[in-house]
């Protein structure tokens, strides 16, 4: 297979490792299971080209604006779900993401609707627009490493400590004076901004943004699947998960995608169930348990 095939695989693995890392920050650390990260991802993907079109600003501004916009939406989500408990947070995130998707399809004048946007920007660093794949690998790798590093830092910070206490027992945390809402809102906003950056890179790389490839519900499931496969709540889980899931998906799609419609999704669903039942704490958890057992044997 050509070098481009492998580059493509690597770039997507890095992007998804980063987005999954962002999801893990919220789900793994704070115990808040979002199924709406497609909204953040999509906002990230749409904002740079739309801003470039409208105002002619460079991509970097667009990426920052997309992250800010996603964080603002996250704040609204956190505010709305203030009075509810975990499964409702999940349902609320689904609702918000669907609203964003439907609006993106509806406002054709701005987004071109389901037809999608082709990205045609001035090549160069200011727009990070290249015909070659290598610069995108660099950017995606920096992004993934940055997210994972940030998650590791947050985990050891005061915010991380608060998030874990909220995850373990929200009521106890509240009665001990942990500012539950603030901690949750911060985590949701950081997670959203990071996911949006992943969406921006994805859009720049594919040079095409449409609701199906950046806003669909399956894109909200994707970071969850990756993280759960890798290891929920472990900083390295998303990377491991992406390194396994993305290549497998790629292969499945290239084998069956055109021929047997649905087989790819069927395997996706069954794999999700199998992983959850067999390895509920993912690869990282599985490896740790294994090591623990060996130590005890010795």
């Amino acid at each position: 297979m050509s070098i481009n095939f492998w580059l493509d695989l690597l770039i997507l693995t890095c992007i998804w490792a980063g987005v999954a890392g962002a999801w893990n920050l919220l789900a793994g650390f704070a115990g808040q299971f979002s199924l709406g990260h497609a909204a953040f991802f999509g906002i990230g993907a749409y904002t740079p080209p739309l801003l470039a079109q409208a105002l002619g600003v460079a991509t970097w501004f667009g990426i920052a604006a997309g992250a800010a916009l996603a964080a603002a939406l996250a704040l609204v989500i956190a505010g709305v779900s203030l009075r509810t408990r975990w499964p409702f947070f999940t349902l609320i995130t689904i609702a918000f993401a669907e609203v964003v998707r439907i609006l993106a399809v509806y406002f054709k004048g701005i987004t071109k609707g389901s037809e999608g946007l082709m990205l045609e920007l001035e090549p160069g660093f200011a727009n990070y627009f290249y015909l070659d794949k290598w610069p995108y690998l660099l950017l995606a790798a920096i992004y993934a490493a940055g997210v994972i590093w940030l998650c590791a830092v947050i985990r050891r910070s005061r915010l991380g400590f608060r998030l874990l206490s909220v995850r373990e027992d929200e009521d106890a945390a509240r009665s001990l004076g942990v500012p539950v809402f603030m901690a949750r809102a911060n985590a949701t906003m950081i997670s959203a901004a990071l996911a949006a950056m992943g969406g921006s890179i994805f859009g720049l790389y594919t040079k095409f943004v449409d609701p199906d490839s950046t806003l669909s519900f399956l894109l909200s499931v994707q970071p969850a699947l990756i993280t759960i496969v890798g290891g929920l709540g472990h900083a390295l889980g998303p990377l491991l998960g992406a390194a396994l899931v993305i290549p497998i998906e790629h292969l499945l799609r290239s084998w069956f995608g055109g021929v047997l419609f649905g087989l790819h999704g069927l395997i996706f669903g069954l794999a999700l169930i199998a992983v959850l039942l067999v390895l509920p704490d993912g690869l990282v958890g599985g490896l740790r348990r294994r090591r623990g057992r060996q130590v005890r044997h010795a």
Binding site: F33, L35, G262, G265, A271
Partner: peptide
Amino acid sequence: HAHVKIFVTLGLSIALQNLALL
């Protein structure tokens, strides 16, 4: 854990939809 509760039936939903598609 909560994530198992949520995602197992989600997996079932995805699998059934795609089975029907197939």
